[in-house]
Amino acid sequence: MARPKPEPVQVIKKRRDAALRQLVGAVPYIGFLGVTFERRGDELTGILAYDEKNIGNPLLPALHGGVTGAFLEITAITELAWSMIWERIESGGEEAERLEAGGMVSLPRTIDFTVDYLRSGLPRDAYARARITRSGRRYASVQVEGWQDNRDKPFIQATGHFMMPRFDRG
């Protein structure tokens, strides 16, 4: 049996990038903090661009712990939502078409979130990646790590549980 000819790479990239842009762009608070995402295949990296308004203590100065904690929560939720979107887009069909036409998925809801502040956040860009350690039908567990200049020296880490939206709600 002959394999169907794969789609051109630009078509695939465009579709995936558009889906990610739509997911991130739909959440006002992500834009408020200035968080963006970079994609390599299905892997996401959150970027918190430095902004004076995200400073907590102006004397140090350091990023507000609430902002860096929020950054990790955003990264965790986006990772979860992205994993749902990815699966649906890649498997094709009506649901993929709906998403491509600008349809949204319901977002996972935070049940609990524990943040571990390892170092103070320096006044420059920060990065974060999340790993889904359990992905169940009802809830998911996610670990997130944030770093700045040095990938091997995270300045913040977090773990959280999230209630997954029901598939039939979209």
């Binding site: 809801r109 609990d112 979130f113």
Partner: peptide, 9 residues
């Protein structure tokens, strides 16, 4: 400085 913060929603 915050060392650890756990939030339950």
């Amino acid at each position: 400085a915050t060392m650890d913060l756990r939030i339950d929603y």
